[in-house]
Amino acid sequence: MTDLLYNNQHIYLFVALFLLFFGIAGVVCRRTLIGMLVSMELIMNGAGLNLVALNRFVSPENGYGMAFTLIIMGIAAAEAAIALGIIMLTFKKYGHIEGGDLKEMKD
């Protein structure tokens, strides 16, 4: 039974790794602030997937990975709310949300 594709732990860890890399690349390469926020959500999802996969394959007798993934979901939700509030205020004040053009504090 362990040669079924979905009972193999490495594929889940690789998917979480890809999500993490896509997320980091998105935060670095995206121009608008909302695009960066979307990529940050990808990073958090990848972390959660990693925790649950390790819970199921390395220590399946308790549910710590699942409980922590719920806490990560809560953190991601709170962070998205505040980040969007700040983005809306930035848009109201400056008229655009391009990350590269917000340079008031630059010398």
Binding site: F18, L19, F22, C29, V38, S39
Partner: peptide, 9 residues
């Protein structure tokens, strides 16, 4: 999953 991540970025 991976296609959605690619589209998101």
């Amino acid at each position: 999953t991976l296609g959605g991540a690619a589209m998101a970025v």
